[in-house]
Amino acid sequence: MTGPLLEAKGIEKSYGHVDALRGADFTLMEGEVVSLIGDNGAGKSTLVKILSGVESPDAGQILIDGDPVRFESVEQARVAGIETVHQDLALCADLTPAANFFLGREVLRPGLLGRLGFLDHAAMRTRARQECERLGVRLKSDTVSVSTLSGGQRQGVAVARAVTWARRVVFMDEPTAALGVVQTERVLDLIRSVRDSGVAVVLITHNMQDVKAVSDRIEVLRLGRRVARFSGADVSMEELVGAMTGALEQDPAGSDSNGLDDPDRPGTAEPRASGRDLDAPDTGALESLDEEQNR
């Protein structure tokens, strides 16, 4: 495994007087599930919006495969293979699930009609239905608008859409917020199978159980900065909560010139309190936590 698939360094973003992100870092390796956690207002959604081209950062760098990129629009992030389930603005309620599914990438009729901009309704409906069912989202009818679906069904459609189109990364900003136990379990399964198909997943959720269940790694955001990283496997609840609330300060002034890019380095050698637990199976190389951290 080589360098990170997606890396954000020193991202800053303010809305008027509110500093949503103050030099936030983020790392995502190929084919892993990373949970991005933090208190309300920590800046998680803002970071996701920046990494998916919805907003542009005031400062900082985004690297994909090590190359710096600038996303001027959602379209550019999509071209890079990034799809997003946003926390708030997921779907057009007046459109059908299929119309939402294909919004911005409509399938046109073959031939002349297609060149005139005629939509291939049937093709889109069939495909959308297939993809939703593949992910366990059952829709009674595909001719009703999304506004008639339950919150959970809507979330299902949004997740299915993102997962279908993503080639490299899916960001999911609280995708299970409206879901029941069974459906949540299904989304978690889905996240795993997406990961197994080679697409990296970034999950944002406040449910620590889910975080622990599905994450290969966990990154913690606090007051607009990354303050800790954990391996998902065996981090304790206390550590997560501590990192989120700031009770447990770790990585800051961390030393870290340690062999970050050495996948064979025994993670167990790292003290737990450092917040870094490098024995996560899928994360060969964790990059230095700190260098950017305390700029």
């Binding site: 708030d88 603005l89 309620a93 007046d94 001719t143 608008s145 506004s147 917020a177």
Partner: peptide
Amino acid sequence: MTAPSRSSKSQRTETE
């Protein structure tokens, strides 16, 4: 999920 749910559209049928 907080997608605003308002308005109607021709594709909508059942709720009519």
